[in-house]
Amino acid sequence: FSITQFVRNLGLEHLMDIFEREQITLRVLVEMGHKELKEIGINAYGHREKLIKGVERLI
């Protein structure tokens, strides 16, 4: 299971460039909250919320 699959499953594949540029893996994403996601350029609250909720389902 990769970050690419995870992001695609959430319908947020347009954010993949950010994850690749910042070298974010699923392991790193698990540790990130709204503040960190915003810092790397994910400005939409809804997108950040989707990512965080998606990660919570993985754990």
Rank of each mutant, 00 (worst) to 15 (best):
G11D: 07
F6H: 01
L15G: 00
I40S: 03
E22F: 10
L29Q: 01
K38Y: 09
V28S: 10
H47L: 08
L26R: 02
V55E: 00
Q5S: 11
H47A: 14
L10K: 00
I18P: 01
L37Y: 05
N9C: 15
K50Q: 10
V55G: 06
L12S: 00
L37W: 04
R8N: 08
H34M: 04
I18N: 03
R27T: 14
L37D: 01
I24F: 04
I24N: 03
I24W: 03
L26I: 10
K50P: 01
F1W: 09
R27Q: 13
K38P: 00
R57Q: 12
E36D: 08
R48I: 08
V28Y: 07
G54L: 05
G33M: 04
R21V: 05
N9H: 12
V30T: 12
E36G: 06
N9P: 02
L58T: 04
F6Q: 00
E49S: 09
L10F: 02
R57F: 10
K53I: 08
L29R: 02
K35V: 07
G54P: 00
V30W: 06
T4V: 13
E36Y: 04
F1V: 12
N43C: 14
V28K: 15
L12P: 01
E31M: 13
E31T: 14
I18L: 08
M32Y: 07
I59D: 05
I59H: 09
E13H: 10
S2E: 13
L26E: 02
I59R: 12
Q5R: 08
L15E: 00
V7A: 06
I52Q: 02
E49C: 11
G46A: 15
I40A: 06
E39V: 07
I52F: 02
R8M: 12
I40R: 04
R8C: 10
F19Q: 00
S2D: 15
H47F: 07
R48P: 02
G11K: 07
R48V: 06
G41Q: 03
Q5K: 09
E39P: 01
L51A: 01
N43Y: 13
Y45K: 12
L15V: 06
R27P: 14
I52G: 01
I42Q: 02
E13L: 10
I40N: 02
G33K: 08
Y45G: 06
L37C: 04
I24G: 01
I59P: 06
G46C: 15
G33D: 06
K53E: 08
R27A: 14
L51N: 01
F19E: 00
L12T: 02
G54M: 06
T25A: 04
R21G: 06
L51S: 00
L58K: 02
K53F: 06
F19I: 06
M16H: 06
E22Q: 11
F6R: 00
G41V: 07
I3D: 02
E31V: 12
Q23Y: 07
R57C: 13
K35H: 09
K38S: 09
L15I: 08
G54V: 04
F6M: 05
L51Q: 00
N43W: 11
E22R: 09
Q5T: 11
Q5D: 15
R27L: 13
T25E: 06
E39R: 11
L10G: 02
T25D: 09
F6V: 05
R21S: 08
E39N: 11
R48M: 05
E56N: 10
K50L: 12
L26H: 02
L12Q: 01
I52K: 04
Y45N: 08
V28G: 11
T4E: 15
T25Q: 06
Y45D: 09
H47E: 15
E22K: 14
I42T: 01
